[in-house]
Computed example of a mutant assay.
Amino acid sequence: MKKKRISITDIANALQVTPSTVSRALNGGGKVSEKKRLEIISLAKKLGYRPNPIAKSLLANRTQTIGLILPEFTHHFYSRVLAGIESITSKAGYQLLICTSNENQNQEIKSTLTLLDARVDGILATISKMNDKFEHIQEVMDSGTPLVLVDRFSEEIETPYVISDDFKGAFSAVDYLCQIGCKNILHIKGPDNLSTTFNRFMGYKEALRKHNMPLKEELVLESSDPKLVEKIRLCLTRHQVDGAFTYSDYLAFEIYKLASQLKIQIPEELSVIGYADEPISTYISPTLSTVNQQPFEMGAMSARYLLNKINDPEVALEVKNLETKLMIRESCKVVETQS
């Protein structure tokens, strides 16, 4: 049988005082004698009284909750983003209500409306990769609920963002491949419609331009292509590919598997750089060079931005680009230094 929750009225009845007297005593209000206040507090502890958070939130117009929508938790990147967010929100006394979209727009819309119905004080979200409708995001902003978007950018939504500098991250990776002498650099792009895919491709192109190398369309592949594996194999066998830069570490692993089948040595014949610094990058052999996006810092900064917005709705819109870090490991040749 469910145990009845002790209420202010129960304490008031037991001590033959009014509920308002109990409320003032428990909340430090005036017009209650010190003797009576201590008596009320003592009985409340004895009975196991706990304040009703819903009632308190209605009085304060705050729920002390923050909604979070992430595409998934399986990738190390998003688990680190979550850890960064929680490191800030928990210290500030906020609880997280966490939803996943599974990269599905309909699920994202449902999650957004659920969080609004729960009267969260603010929302942190990473928009799904299939997102082409933004009415639900606009509804958040129209409701006055503070919103900060994380990792992915959309020109359709005017709100604070915390993202990594994917252009510079990709540029640094491909620039390194050019410096070690790679002439035919394969690039596997990410999902369509994502700002991260576009910015990493732009970084790839700019690094080639810096080194006066032509963009070869046959060396740019789409990760969504059902024939991706066959096309990677074709590039490795027919186009003398000696370098590869991929949208993710998992796509880099696909190159590893094919290189092994084709007896292509990494890094002696083929240098590879992935993206995101997932745990897989240090587990595979040779260890994978990659770009670290500082996901923990991204999460922490987005939480700070949101709390600032909650406390001051007039705070200016900001787009924060976090610096990335190029992690050179065994999958790349080492840049020769001039003596």
Rank of each mutant, 00 (worst) to 15 (best):
E330P: 06
E222V: 01
G203Y: 03
G243L: 04
R238A: 12
I264S: 06
A316D: 01
D249I: 04
V272K: 05
Q294E: 14
Q265G: 00
F198Q: 11
M298R: 08
T282A: 12
N292L: 07
E278Y: 04
F296Q: 14
P286T: 13
I273L: 10
N321A: 08
I266A: 07
S285M: 14
S281N: 09
L221E: 02
N311Y: 05
E318T: 14
M202V: 05
P279R: 11
E297M: 10
M213I: 05
G243A: 07
F245D: 02
P286C: 14
K205D: 01
L262S: 02
P214F: 01
N311G: 09
Q240L: 06
K263P: 00
L228C: 07
E268N: 09
S302W: 01
T246A: 05
Q261F: 10
A300N: 07
A244N: 07
N292Y: 14
A303Y: 01
I284E: 13
P295K: 12
V220T: 05
M301S: 09
I328S: 05
V229H: 05
Y283Q: 15
A303M: 02
E268L: 02
Q261M: 11
Q261G: 06
S281Y: 05
Q261A: 11
F198R: 10
T290Q: 10
I310L: 03
N199C: 03
H211M: 09
N212M: 04
P267Q: 10
D312P: 00
P279Q: 12
K210W: 10
S302L: 02
K320V: 13
N199V: 00
E318N: 12
A316H: 03
I284P: 13
F201D: 00
A259P: 08
S285R: 13
S289K: 08
D242H: 02
N212P: 01
A316Y: 02
L270P: 07
K309M: 07
L307C: 06
A303P: 03
I310S: 02
L262P: 02
M213H: 01
S248E: 05
P214N: 06
T237M: 11
C332M: 11
Y204E: 02
L317A: 01
R209W: 01
K263R: 14
I328K: 03
R209F: 04
E222T: 04
P286L: 12
L322T: 06
K231E: 08
E222Q: 11
L251G: 04
L326H: 03
A259M: 08
E269L: 01
M202I: 05
K257C: 14
L234C: 08
L215V: 15
L326G: 02
K216G: 00
E218V: 15
L317Y: 13
F253M: 15
E206I: 04
K210Y: 14
C332D: 13
K320L: 11
L322S: 08
L258A: 06
E297V: 11
S331G: 11
